[in-house]
Design a protein around this nucleic acid. Structure first.
Lengths: 230, 230
DNA sequence: GCTGTAGTTGACAAATTCTTTACGGGATAT
DNA sequence: ATATCCCGTAAAGAATTTGTCAACTACAGC
């Protein structure tokens, strides 16, 4: 579960975001001025901070600067104007990305994920970054989303790709249905939500069994799935 | 003999600099507004551009951006205020250095020389100034934005050129629509923004298929495009 | 001002992908 | 044993995404 700190003086927006991000599976803490923002950001271990630029008591840039003196927590700046200058200044001071209001909720989530992915990736450099993920006779090309089964290219959807990638990355260990839903479908698992089962089902049909005939994916009833490692 | 373009609306300063730099052995062309600045900068092959930030018609940042769309000519920004923000913005957009007014003439010359030395250093110039980018039977001339398909010159717009260049540089790996939009259109992808799709569509029409009949560009639904490498 | 070119946007069809519903079967708990 | 729960999957339906035409806007050049 990822903790988000939202620093914004627009109470209505805060309310909306708390609800929306909550439904996406995040835990959100909202504060409404700069001082509180700095304090809260440094008091707990947040996964990411969403920081408005125009704030009472301490503006967003100042907040960011103070946070950066002590913490490398990812920060996504929010601003009212679509102003390049704000963006560049923010990035220069150490923001990870920038989004101008009004923004689409889904775009917010997309940018957050991009940041978290970047931050959590073990190595940033292009040369050393792993571009291919292999498992048994499967080969996932992370660069262009292609999946090879032996020599043949499989026709895989984006969602299926993410599901398979996740299962292979954690091969041998259980991945809950909720986790898969969050990673691949960008939402929390809901009651009677069978979508992820369908994706796993379709995936099984497409990737078939292991070369020795054993199935690749095992179901853990009541919990989730995992890719069978050897 | 090195040609200098000076873009500044302060006529007195222009006069002074023309005389001083002339006495230092440079040939100086001075223009007094942003539009003229862009035009002149792109019309001739200057050794360096001295660019004021506060300009009529088009401010220095906009001038720089427009120049950078087509040229890698060194640019030294001049600004009235000793403002960090200006400096950061300028460097971010692609200026080579920055000098705040009022400045010492000697310092101006020193900085110009430093830039020219850096730009002309042999190790940089070969890598950065590669003139032609080739892929299959396509040949992009980076210097003049000409694209050859076999022997014939294609009629390609500046935006299409950048899109194609980006896709070819990263051939084989996916380039997101957002990335393409940022690189080619200088903005981020917005909701319902189909502009990049049109550019890709037009590009496909113009460059046709590979010699063997396969398409050059593949769509990765939900993500972006990539140039099919072999 | 007029004209042409480039870029953007709306609209729509087509293709593809995702979700839901429904039913059946095996697992689990009582 | 049997009632219940959970999962597999086919099929239908909903939704999204993309390709592209055509109209529109913006703007540089004449």
């Amino acid at each position: 579960m990822i903790d988000i700190l939202l620093v914004d003086d627009d109470l209505e927006l805060c309310e909306l975001l708390v609800e929306f991000l909550g439904s996406e599976g995040y835990r959100v803490t909202a504060v409404n001025d700069g001082l509180e923002g700095v304090e809260t950001a440094l008091s707990r271990n947040f996964g990411i901070v969403l920081l408005d630029v125009t704030l009472p008591k301490l503006n967003g840039f100042e907040v960011l600067r103070k946070i950066r003196q002590q913490s490398q927590v990812p920060v996504l700046m929010l601003t009212a104007r679509g102003d390049d200058v704000d963006r560049i200044v923010g990035l220069e001071i150490g923001a990870d990305d920038y989004l101008s209001k009004p923004f689409n909720h889904r775009e917010l989530v997309a940018r957050m994920k991009a940041i978290l992915r970047r931050v959590n990736s073990p190595d940033e450099s292009d040369r050393t970054r792993r571009k291919v993920l292999e498992m048994d006779d499967l080969s996932l090309n992370l660069a262009n989303h292609e999946v090879l089964l032996g020599e043949t290219v499989l026709d895989i959807t984006a969602t299926e790709f993410v599901v398979l990638k996740t299962l292979i990355e954690k091969s041998g260990e259980l991945v809950t249905r909720d986790e898969l839903t969050q990673v691949a479908l960008n939402r929390r698992l809901m009651l009677h939500d069978r979508a992820i089962d369908m994706h796993v089902s379709n995936l099984r049909r497409k990737i078939g069994n292991k070369p020795d005939g054993r199935p690749r994916l095992k179901t853990v009833r009541g919990s989730g799935y995992f890719y069978i490692a050897d």
